[in-house]
Amino acid sequence: MLEWQDEQEGITVVRLTEESLTASNAASFRARLSELAEGGRTRLILDLANVRYVDSSGLGALVSLLKRIGVKGELALCAVAPAVMSVLTLTRMDKVFSIYADRGAAVEGLSE
């Protein structure tokens, strides 16, 4: 479900391999990413390039992670598909998350 790669300055890029983030996988997604953060990876970029659809449970999981990780670290999103972006815009979450066009821009953005 998740693949990650450590980058410069303690940044980790996590790629979601599944095509959707919904009620069926949101809980395990949240648990896996929390584990990563508790293991010390607290500057996270979530690469959503594969994800075509996020439902309300998926959005809840993203915000919950932001609340948990955002206290002592960072959680940014990148490569957000248009359909997912429209959910973030509808719910104003585009104002809450740092969102980058791609991995490169996100790593650069967090390194600044």
Binding site: S56, G60, A61, V63, S64, K67, R68, T91
Partner: peptide, 10 residues
């Protein structure tokens, strides 16, 4: 709620 987001609604 402080951290949980399970029961939010539109």
């Amino acid at each position: 709620e402080e951290l949980d987001t399970d029961d939010y609604f539109s």
